[in-house]
């Protein structure tokens, strides 16, 4: 018998093993839901899949009686706009901060300790301040995401900048490169794939800040909706919304990973020489 660390599942089993936990969870849910609905047809805790379908159809395919909007899509659009703007601002700011603090000791000296301290402030604790300063509108939600994510990306990019081999910087200088040329031609292109990685890692936190902000003060959005219908114990809406958020998060992560492989083949293949 081989050691446990050397045992790998054979290839047809691999996929099966991956799907197995999902199937188990599904079966478990269906059994539970059936049992509860049998005892009480009005039970709201574990709705059946047909109830999910009905709720989703009501939210996504019929206009709301009050506003005339298709709530599911309106929620999705406003949430994604907030998340997209917030993450983009964080990515650009984080990249610039990380590049300059990583590459220029004169910028690093005053900014790096500040950045470390700021990154330790829990962003959600700042949310009341953001509401006070920026009001309850769109701006405060976007700012929360940007403020929460930027320090993480900035520190990650700073570290990545400092990890670029010193030899490359010396080489560029011996070829006559100026500081802007080194920043733009040598450092920046090597940081872009790392930036995409950092954005991928911080997307989870981005969703967290988005849903928290929407739960507290919003009039639409995916987070707003699930916290709103919680009052009616509407699990038939909450669970599909959660699944949808998960699917969106998975899609963005895959899209970013694909972009990285596509745009920076040398990075995906582990080039660093």
């Amino acid at each position: 018998m081989k050691r446990l660390i050397n045992l790998t599942p054979a290839s047809p089993w691999h996929l099966l093993l991956a799907l197995l936990p999902f199937a188990l969870l599904l079966v478990l849910y269906l059994l539970g839901s059936d049992a509860r609905l049998e005892a009480n047809p009005n039970d709201k805790l574990l709705p059946s899949f047909s109830q999910f379908g009905e709720a989703l159809g009501r939210m996504a395919l019929e206009p709301s009686k009050r506003s005339g909007e298709y709530l599911f899509w309106a929620d999705t659009a406003s949430s994604l706009a907030r998340l997209g703007i917030g993450m983009s601002v964080a990515a650009v700011t984080g990249l610039l901060l990380g590049l300059f603090t990583g590459a220029l000791p004169l910028v690093r000296a005053p900014l790096s300790p500040l950045l470390t301290v700021i990154s330790l402030v829990p962003p959600l604790a700042l949310l009341p301040i953001l509401f006070i300063v920026f009001g309850l509108g769109e701006l405060s939600k976007v700012v929360l995401i940007a403020v929460g994510i930027t320090p993480f990306i900035a520190r990650d990019i700073q570290r990545a900048t400092q990890q670029i081999p010193f030899e490359q910087l010396v080489k560029a200088q011996t070829l006559g490169a100026s500081t802007p040329q080194i920043l733009i031609r040598v450092l920046l292109p090597q940081l872009l794939p790392k930036l995409i990685d950092a954005v991928r890692l911080s997307l989870g936190a981005g969703w967290l800040f988005l849903i928290a902000a929407e739960a507290i003060a919003a009039t639409d959005g995916l987070g707003y909706r699930i916290f709103l219908v919680r009052r009616y114990l509407a699990m038939d809406v909450i669970l599909p919304y959660v699944a949808w958020i998960t699917l969106l998060a998975f899609a963005f992560d895959s899209l970013l990973a694909w972009t990285n492989r596509r745009l920076f083949p040398w990075y995906a293949q582990g080039g660093q020489s």
Binding site: Q181, Q272, S273
Partner: peptide, 27 residues
Amino acid sequence: QYSVFAHMTVIDNVLAACAFARPGLTG
């Protein structure tokens, strides 16, 4: 080791060297 730029093709590595020898911000 680490003497060449990992994110550039062979010809780009040499072209970048030509660009660095000239003024200009972007290389």
